[in-house]
Every structure is written in C-alpha cells, then in structure tokens.
Nucleic acid binder design. Structure first.
Lengths: 198, 198
DNA sequence: AAATAAAGTTTCCTATAGGAAACTTTTATT
DNA sequence: AATAAAAGTTTCCTATAGGAAACTTTATTT
C-alpha cells in the first residue's frame, strides 16, 4: 500500500454515493469519534484494547479511518467503552433548535383548517422540534365525522382551554373534559376528540 | 460450514460479553431489523440491492445473520433505504405508554411546589412519557429569585393560561406573554419565567 | 541529551466480509 | 399440476477486516 493510498483510503467518505445518486452530506467520522471518546476517557489504545477485547492495532486503524469496522466490532466498542452505539457515529447531539426560541402571540399562529378541526399551529418558525404544539377548535360532534380512528406515531398531550370535549380512544371509555382538564395518550392507539359544547 | 455452524454463527450474540464482564442484555438484531425494514417497504432483495449498491447475496447474508456488516455497508443500507443508521439495530421504538392514556381533571394533578413555582404535574400515571406536561403558578418576580439561568436537556413549550409573565432566555430580549400567548425554546439555553401579574 | 519506557503505527498473516453466479425455493401463470 | 418467472440462498472467489508482533514515535527518567 503506497503512502498515497494510505492517506486516501477513506478520504472523506461521503456516505451513500450509490448508483441512485442519493448523496448524504454527512461525513463518516467513526474513527474521529472513537478517538475523541477514548481520549476524553483518558484511555490508551492498550487500555481500550483490554476493555473492548479488540487488538491495539485494530483500534489504531479504525481511529485513522484505515478500515471500516464490522458491526460486531462496533458492538464491542460500545459495550467496552460504556457508550451507546450511535455515539460512535453521531456527533455530540446538536438539537436542531439549539439556542433558539419562538414566541407565538395569541391568535398569531399559522392557521390550518380541516373538516373536523380548526388548528392554529404554534412556534412554526422553529424547525425540527420534538413537539408540535397547536391550539384547536373542534367541529366534529361524533365519530362519523371521521369514519375511523386517527392513528399516528408518537404521543399526544391535550389541555382544554374552553368549552367541553369528549376524548374517544380505543380500549377506553370516552372521557368528558372541560376547561383545565387534560389528557396524555399514545397516538398509535386510535383516538378522536369531539365537541360536546353548545 | 456445517449445518450447525450456519444456524449458530451469530446465535443470540449477547453484546459485550468481554473480559470486563460487562454484559449487555440486548440482542444483536441487525439482520432482523433490516429484513423488517425491507419488507415493510415492500422491496425485494433485488430492489434493495439496486438502491444500496450492495449485492443481493450480501443483503441475504446480513438478514440471516450470517455475516456482520461493516460500517460502510451499514451506511449504504441507511442511505439507500432512506433510514437513519440507528434504525438498523434499534428495535422499532416501543413507546412505554403503548396503548395507554391518562386523563387529569382540572386541579387533580400531583402538586409540586418550589420557592419560585407551584407546579401541578399532569398525567403522572403514565411513566416514560416523551413529554412532561404541567401547569405552573409563577411566584418569582425577578431574576434574583433564581440566581442563575435554568438549563437542562430537551425542549420546552409554554402556554399562558392566566395573568402575565415574562420569558427570559439567553441570547434574546425578554418576552412579555399574556393569556393565549405561547413559546417554544431549547432548554439547554438558559431560561426563566417570571410573573408580571399583580 | 542518552537511555528507557510507553504509546501509537505498520506489516504481515489469517479470518471473514462482500460480490458474481449457480442453485433452490416460492409464487404466479397457463 | 406442470411450467415459467421471480425471489431468496449458497457457493466460490476476491477483497478487506482483525490480530500478533515488529517497528516508529513520543514521553519520561536518569
């Protein structure tokens, strides 16, 4: 292997440069990550070797991006160094909303109407939030307005701001909620909110 | 390779059974995961092969846990199948609140008072929620009640139910919020809420 | 600043991953 | 139910990962 080869073996390894031409911008930094984790823990290659059961040389090569470790090696790394697997290739988490906030004054949210609901989406300036807050006015007055359960990934929390609604969910009896009442539920279970106000 | 070998190659591969005797309970299911993802997307091995740029045979062997894919292969999988890398070895998230809900009537939450806030924790019956909803009455009337910024992991959404408060955050001017106003912010950035009601 | 020790890298070899093609099994079609 | 087509598996080979030991570099001690 020539000197040039060594340096360029995994040059900047752009992920997914496959025939479909799907290109992912992120770089493969498993070596860099590993070295960072090891040095932060003040471990030598020898010590890391003992903990992971991997050869000193193997660790060195991974750190210098000379080889692409197998999944089983990655598992030994995570286990031996007491970290979660994704830490090996995920840069220290940067929340997408890092250092940002978004204030939405009453009634200034982005409107979004459907047949059954009138939503006011809140904090729409912030992208990639973990929560999607919104205020809703409920029009639906019975199950038939929907036809079937609403289901989707994630969890929902609701708080009644005015009037009276019924929360219908699979497996449970309907719950009548008035101002100040709230509920939290798994959204993969069928759910609906209907209005029982006048 | 004997029939027995084939079956047991990666028998139930308990991770991290290394000399430090650190034992991780989780199983290595990258093959199972991959197969699940592929079939859910109604892809044949051939199609998956085209998308990822990997050989049909390689995919088959990975799915049957006959080989341990290298990191670079895992990247091609994630990229080609349009998934996040950790999805390959993390079982489809089973929310801890699966199939459950928790209704909290007004004033029936669990009280939790501090010097500066009077909290009413909501939906405390459900454990391991992704969100922690609560109503708070704010006592603090200036920064000095705290001494320094509040900081923690995650994101916060707040909605004013009555009175008037000021939201103080690093990097931003204070925001005055009245009933119906809301805000969303990164909680790792210093933040405080103080009361400006009478 | 030599000598020694410790940490890290490279080489060389063996084991295993990944690809091409043959083979087997399953599904669809007549 | 026989045939064809499609999907999946296995074989066989080549390329590359991983381990042992030699080698180089960096830090430490005298």
């Amino acid at each position: 292997m020539s000197e040039h080869d060594k340096v360029d073996k995994y040059p900047s390894m752009t992920i997914g440069d496959n025939e479909n031409n799907k290109r992912v911008v992120e770089k493969a930094t498993i070596g860099v990550q590993l070295k960072a984790i090891r040095t932060e823990n003040k471990l030598t290659l020898e010590e890391a070797s003992k903990r992971t059961g991997l050869a000193r040389s193997t660790l060195s090569k991974i750190e210098n991006e000379q080889i692409s470790p197998t999944f089983s090696v990655m598992q030994k790394l995570a286990s031996g160094l007491n970290i979660e697997l994704p830490q090996l290739f995920t840069k220290p988490k940067e929340t997408k909303v890092t250092g940002r906030r978004d204030v939405t004054l009453n009634g200034q949210g982005r409107p979004h109407a459907t047949l059954t609901y009138e939503h006011e989406l809140l904090s729409t300036q912030l992208r990639n939030k973990k929560m999607m807050p919104y205020k809703s006015r409920v029009h639906a007055r019975n199950f038939d307005h929907f036809g079937e359960w609403v289901r989707h990934e994630g969890e929902e929390f609701l708080l009644v701001l005015e009037g009276e609604v019924q929360l219908l969910t699979e497996f449970y009896e309907p719950a009548t909620l008035v101002v100040g009442d709230s509920a939290y539920y798994d959204a993969t279970m069928g759910h609906l909110v209907i209005s029982t106000s006048k």
